[in-house]
Amino acid sequence: MHYASGGQKKAPTRPIVAARRRRQLHPFFFQMGPVALTISSVLLIALMALLYLSQLSQALNVNQQIQDYQAKQAVLQRQNQDLVNTLAQEQSPAYIAAHAQAQGLVPADPKAVEVLEVPGLQSVPNQQSGAAP
């Protein structure tokens, strides 16, 4: 209700208090009594708890997966290390010499080697990188 400016009448206070009470009791678009509000709150909390538990469960599952992957990684690393070790052993000169001997091979007799000097001959580059010191 509007009044002309300069009017002496005061605005009534009762309707404002009523509106305030209405806002307190009906905070949303739909009307909700105290019981409904309590049930809603409980439900909301329950929903949040459910969401939290769900998230927690997912996190634990992920954690379990990570642990499984880490365990698999450890096993694979262990296998890899064993393979590196085996490979190194089988590439070792001692291993190769022993197997060559087992197959009947013998070291070349230095006395049987004849050295020929070819003027201007260059050594054949070693194809294996790092073989030359």
């Binding site: 590196v84 490979l87 190194a88 790092g130």
Partner: peptide, 12 residues
């Protein structure tokens, strides 16, 4: 070593 052969490694 100079040719890439493993001289020291680790195993579990």
């Amino acid at each position: 070593d100079a040719n890439g052969l493993v001289l020291a490694t680790n195993v579990v």
